[in-house]
Nucleic acid binder design. Structure first.
Lengths: 197, 197
DNA sequence: GGTCGAAACGGACCACAGTCCGCTTCTATT
DNA sequence: AATAGAAGCGGACTGTGGTCCGTTTCGACC
């Protein structure tokens, strides 16, 4: 009973050396990606660049995929902030259908921009939990605002699916650059699902 | 002019030893997958099991992903035959909407069944070219039969997207087994896109 | 049958992701 | 301030994907 209550001792205060290394690793990783591209980043090089041992890198990120997920997480968070609190039509304030269409275009461009990183981050890990559920929840919410009836969870997933890079790639690669066509196509799809104009 | 016409000497007769090794590799690979699972198959083990050198394995398949793609290709071909010439409603003979709905369910189950293999095969390589374009063409054709108007290529891709494993996984894993719900959801989605009951 | 060029073979070799475990550094307790 | 125990560290080590290149095998043409 001499210990302070568990609730007061926060889960993990994080030691000072650990914090220093974390920061060194993140900035080194960012720099490396900028220099040699996502594919060229090796865990050995990262450890060396950050001035830490390889074991430390794996302690932090668990795996190469975990590292990529951590890098993704940063810009993903910014984007989520823009959706939740940024200016309309992406952020709140615009009519739901406008917000939804803005969401689709924005997400599509974001995924195209981060294509390499997303693929290197793989399926499992921290990414899916955070990113996928957020986008699904948001679209589901907008569908509700639009008084759409049916399995909103499924419809939300179905609308987001064609925005994933794995799907976008096959459309972008061969036919040069019909991004306008993709935006228009998604808009049409969404209107059909929503049920009018 | 002494040579036989090029059209008669087919592009690549394939040497006998090469053919023998190809067969040995394919059956060894199938056996290994059955024994230790997709993840447990290593290229070294495969080479050893088939009684060839490692270089031969890579000559055949190019990479681990290529090997998985080759394994996938087999069942994929069977499935395509069922779609093109099997019994209705998946095969020809049923009304277009019924065929389309049967297609969705069948494709969904196929992707779930081959989940491990598909993921191990990765994005690039022979798989996308064959599988993706076939499914897209087929759906596009059915949409045309249904007199749907708009960018049929995009709509086809959008309908197929939620059937990909990368999307299915997030729906199947957490909520146990609502496969019926997925089938119903896709059916609803399709009816909305097509434009009527 | 003998010869020649090309295709195929195979195992030594390399690079990189990921593990292991002894050592160091921190924080809490007295 | 000293100490004990835990958290963190780091680099040697392992397993596997993938490459390289000298050797073998094939098939076509004399």
């Amino acid at each position: 009973m001499a210990k302070p209550l568990p609730l007061l001792t926060n889960p993990a205060p994080e030691r000072r050396d650990a914090a220093r290394n974390r920061e060194a690793l993140m900035s080194a990783a960012t720099a490396l990606v900028a220099e040699v591209g996502v594919r060229g980043v090796t865990m050995d090089a990262l450890a060396c660049r950050a001035g830490v041992g390889k074991g430390t890198v794996f302690r932090r990120f668990g795996s190469r995929e975990g590292l990529m997920a951590a890098l993704l997480n940063h810009s993903e968070t910014e984007w989520q902030a823009a959706v939740m609190g940024g200016p309309p039509p992406l952020g709140p304030g615009a009519p739901p259908l406008e917000r939804l269409l803005a969401f689709g275009e924005s997400r599509m461009l974001l995924n195209l921009r981060h294509a390499e990183l997303i693929e290197a981050a793989g399926n499992p890990g921290a990414r899916s939990v955070a990113a996928v559920s957020f986008t699904t929840m948001h679209v589901r919410y907008l569908l509700g605002q639009l008084r759409v009836e049916g399995d909103l969870g499924y419809l939300a997933t179905a609308l987001i699916a064609p925005l994933e890079i794995i799907v976008l790639r096959e459309q972008v690669e061969p036919g040069s650059a019909p991004i306008d066509r993709l935006v228009a196509g998604w808009s049409d799809l969404t209107r059909r699902v929503v049920g009018m104009t």
